[in-house]
Simulated scan of single mutants.
Amino acid sequence: MVIKLFSSRSKILSLQILPKFQIYRNFCDNVLPKTKSSLPEYNYGLTGKGKSKKRKPQMIPVINGELLFGVHPVTLALNVEKRTFYKLYLQASVNKLSDPHQQIVTLCNEKGITVMPSDKVVLDRLSGNRPHQGVCLDVSSLKVDTLDVDEFRKAYKMSAKESLPIWILLHRIQDPMNFGAILRSCYFLGVDRVIFSQEHSAPLNPVVSKSSSGAMEIVPISATRTEQTLVQMIKTEKKNGWKLIGSVGQEDVGSTSFDSAIPIEQFDATGPTILMIGNEGSGLSDRMLKLCDNLVTIKPKQSNSRPCVDSLNVSVATGILLHSLKKSGNPR
């Protein structure tokens, strides 16, 4: 359909009415700027996605790896040097750099990393509209150590000389925010190692690093490619003295499968221990439950005789369980 319009000079103008989709495509093809790069997908379509704001289109720089964002993840990554560094994008509107920002710039200068002053809008795009605190660092992905029996054996030998080793096994944790929060607690409470299977877990990406406040960059982490490999390894190491305890929700304790679960404060760690944390929604699978030597739970203080909150966020529960375990296993 064509509508005829009259301009101020009395000339007839023709306006073709296009379908909505065609108008959108024309806008993208002719108005939005062309860029040579596509942003990494790890910051998009995830739980807790940052808020988007309507802003003018900006040219986005070409990215070589993935983008760490936030002061703590960037600072810790630069200090531990587990990654390859390409370029730092620093918010240009920060006239007087704070001490953390100055420290980042100093580290970049020492390592020969290019510092690129950038507009806040560009940093918002690079971070997926997440809180970047004025810094984004283009880096290679974090390489995770492959879990092998040597790590179990070394930790077991050290237990005779020092405090008992406490490991965390994350079973199918899929929310990157939870994954990061757990890693933060693991670092703060002194977990010796975090292990998991990459088969059904969230990847260790910049979203996890930011939610861990950078702890992902420094916590000892090992993984297997498949869950089957992890299961077989756990079975072997249980014969060599390791104890595997599984965490279950208080709401599950009354069922037949979990009737042996005890409050975490009643559990005493007497040897090298692995605490297994289950998926956010479904918890531990039957396969993993059968591997456990003990089941532990967090008993609520509130009475169950009235409506109440019957569970904890998985990262909060992990912190409580770890704190109790560390007191139990390391009285000295």
Rank of each mutant, 00 (worst) to 15 (best):
M1Q: 10
V2S: 14
I3K: 13
S8D: 09
S8H: 05
R9Q: 09
K11G: 04
K11M: 04
I12Q: 14
I12F: 06
K20H: 10
F21A: 00
Q22R: 11
Y24D: 10
F27T: 15
N30C: 09
E41V: 08
N43C: 06
T47H: 10
G50D: 03
K51D: 11
K53H: 11
K53G: 00
R55L: 10
I60C: 08
I60S: 12
I63T: 10
N64E: 12
E66Q: 07
E66Y: 12
F69I: 08
F69Y: 15
F69V: 13
G70A: 10
H72A: 15
H72V: 13
N79I: 09
K82C: 07
K82L: 12
R83A: 03
F85R: 04
K87P: 13
L90N: 08
A92D: 07
S98M: 06
C108E: 03
C108D: 04
E110N: 08
E110D: 05
M116W: 04
V121L: 10
V122R: 03
S127Q: 07
H132M: 03
C136T: 03
C136V: 05
K143C: 05
D145S: 12
D145G: 01
V149N: 08
R153H: 01
K154R: 13
A155Y: 00
Y156K: 14
L164F: 02
P165M: 05
W167V: 15
I168Y: 00
L170C: 09
N178W: 05
N178V: 01
I182M: 12
D192S: 14
R193A: 06
I195E: 03
I195Y: 10
F196R: 12
S197L: 01
H200E: 02
L204V: 04
S209I: 00
K210R: 15
M216N: 14
E217N: 11
P220E: 02
R225Q: 15
E227I: 02
E227F: 09
T229G: 00
L230E: 01
V231Q: 06
K243I: 02
I245M: 03
G246T: 03
Q250E: 10
Q250G: 00
E251K: 15
E251D: 09
S257Y: 08
D259R: 14
I262A: 14
E265I: 07
T273I: 06
G281Y: 04
S282Y: 14
G283W: 08
S285M: 02
S285H: 12
K290N: 11
L291Y: 10
T297N: 10
S305K: 04
S305D: 06
R306V: 09
P307Y: 01
C308Y: 13
A317G: 11
H323N: 15
S324D: 08
S328W: 13
N330A: 10
